[in-house]
């Protein structure tokens, strides 16, 4: 299901190529303009300015494929069109404008790389499991072999419903999942995960305060959990970290269980891998 390392490598190298092409195209166009002007070559400077426009389009593409969008980089083609559609009559002014524009695009590219994260080749974000989840999901593969397809489907649906904020719908999926797990021989942690998600979804749906006592995993379940068990008592500020940790572990266990047990569920779970990655990186 995951893309091959070759595909991933090709995607990353093409991104690097595009990134390098932005200053090369922009400054290259300006350099061509300087060359044409110094040898008194009668040429339309809009041709050299076209390189700046192409560099802007490339920068906008690089901004578009990042998970976090940079609206400044995204709008550079518009500015390129405004500046260069009708360039100044004086060739020196046009060349200075091209040089300044190329410098601005380079600065924006650096800003994009450092402030807006790494780019992902199209299709890769949907195709692959985020690296932060891979270790946990693979670790759980043996434990998930016993999960009946019906339980795995309920696990996927319960996870998706909870993360989509459809708390009222979670109870049904959790109840079905617990029923499907009956006599499956799977670890009891899966049942506990359904119970935790069901309970917390109900509390959230009815806007109830956090209870003093709530469902949580037992120490015996710890090998199957993504994060270590927290203390289940309130601290000095009244905050009980165990409540949130129980939900995080339960959601991740349901996610990993569904992902490993039935490959068909993966296409649904892919819509929420970013959320699962946020939960596990906690």
């Amino acid at each position: 299901m995951s893309p091959s390392p070759d595909t991933v490598g090709t995607g990353s190298s093409s991104i690097t190529l595009y990134e390098a092409a932005v200053p090369v195209l922009a400054f290259g166009g300006a350099a061509l303009g300087v060359l044409a002007w110094t040898v008194r070559l009668a040429t339309d400077l809009r041709l050299t300015a076209a390189c700046c426009v192409a560099a802007s389009v490339l920068l906008a593409y690089l901004a578009w494929i990042r998970p976090k969008k940079d609206i400044v980089s995204l709008t550079t083609p518009i500015y390129a069109f405004i500046f260069f559609a009708v360039p100044p009559d004086d060739p020196v002014e046009t060349i200075v404008l091209e040089l300044l524009y190329a410098a601005s695009l380079t600065a924006l590219l650096v800003r994009l790389k450092y402030r807006f994260g790494s780019a992902e080749p199209p299709g890769r974000a949907e195709a692959a499991l985020p690296p932060v989840l891979v270790g946990y999901v693979e670790k759980l593969q043996p434990a998930c072999a016993c999960l009946p397809p019906a339980a795995a489907h309920c696990a996927a649906t319960a996870f998706l419903r909870y993360t989509a904020g459809e708390y009222g719908e979670v109870r049904h999926e959790a109840d079905e999942g617990i029923l499907a797990l009956d006599r499956s021989g799977c670890a009891s942690a899966f049942v506990t995960a359904f119970e935790i998600v069901r309970e917390q979804a109900e509390i959230t749906e009815k806007s109830r305060p956090r209870p003093e006592w709530y469902r949580h995993f037992e120490p015996a379940d710890e090998p199957l959990l993504a994060r270590p068990l927290s203390v289940t008592e309130k601290g000095a500020d009244g905050y009980d970290p165990g409540y949130d940790a129980a939900l995080d572990n339960a959601l991740l266990l349901l996610f990993a269980g569904a992902w490993n047990a039935v490959p068909e569920e993966q296409k649904f779970l892919r819509t929420a891998t970013a959320c699962a990655a946020r939960i596990i990186s906690g």
Partner: peptide, 18 residues
């Protein structure tokens, strides 16, 4: 609106009151 932790707010919750 339902009380949620910030970490759990994701793209699948677009349009949900929180």
């Amino acid at each position: 609106a339902k009380s949620v932790r910030i970490k759990l707010i994701n793209e699948n919750m677009i349009g949900k009151p929180v």
